[in-house]
Design a protein around this nucleic acid. Sequence first.
DNA 1: CCAATAATAGAAATCATTATCATTTTCTGC
DNA 2: GCAGAAAATGATAATGATTTCTATTATTGG
Lengths: 130, 130
Amino acid sequence: MAIKYSRQREAIKEFLSGRKDHPTADTVYIGVRREFPNISLGTVYRNLTLLAQMGEIARINVGDGVEHFDPDTSLHYHFVCRDCGCVQDLGIENIVNINEMATEDFDGDINGSVTYFYGVCGKCKRRRDS
Amino acid sequence: MAIKYSRQREAIKEFLSGRKDHPTADTVYIGVRREFPNISLGTVYRNLTLLAQMGEIARINVGDGVEHFDPDTSLHYHFVCRDCGCVQDLGIENIVNINEMATEDFDGDINGSVTYFYGVCGKCKRRRDS
DNA sequence: CCAATAATAGAAATCATTATCATTTTCTGC
DNA sequence: GCAGAAAATGATAATGATTTCTATTATTGG
């Protein structure tokens, strides 16, 4: 099944491009509808899945029951606010040797890991203080 | 809303107790049905949520779309097999200073983190080799 | 331009989880 | 033990995110 161009897929890519807020499929849907008023939610899901498979975007599952999408596929870490649920990038370095550490005393192979951080984001923190 | 004893809740706790396979709600349901043939799946979910809130068990979300439950609430790490989907405990030490590391250059507060490891479990590895 | 094949919109289906509600259990004080 | 209040249950309906289905439309290579 060779992949063919689609304007909707381009619009989805364009919508995500440069974003730092890790939108959900529904957010993408609402956003892209400005340009394609009758795009289908199914089309959004299909293309997000396709783009993730092609490695053009990343799916991130932070445990809030909804899938988020990130145009930045480079290795970096995410923070999730327990107050507002926002998902932000963190500027820390790669956690060294973590996969190798984990492989000790384990009889399978470990080739990946994912770490999420939780707490209160700056905005919610300031709102609490006031 | 004071909590009252319930035989079903005890059976659920008993079923989980000592388990290392991190069952899902459905697995617990099927298991507990041996003793309570007409327990409701809703009751299972309600009690798993309750037990997790009370800190007697842990909910774990490894990104496979289903919630898993762990009677071991101590800090430890989990491995998820990309082949069979099984979830196993890992014997590694606490990843030092990870939350403090992450807090640098971040304007909110970080007070928790979760790390999952992915790969091929021992059983699937041996099956592949043969 | 045309046929083939992939992609779409819209809707229905699926799957995990939660909510509702009438009935049953548990518990507390007599 | 017993009554009554409160919580828990079972059965089922409802929800919400995601996937699948299908007839129609768009893309593409020749």
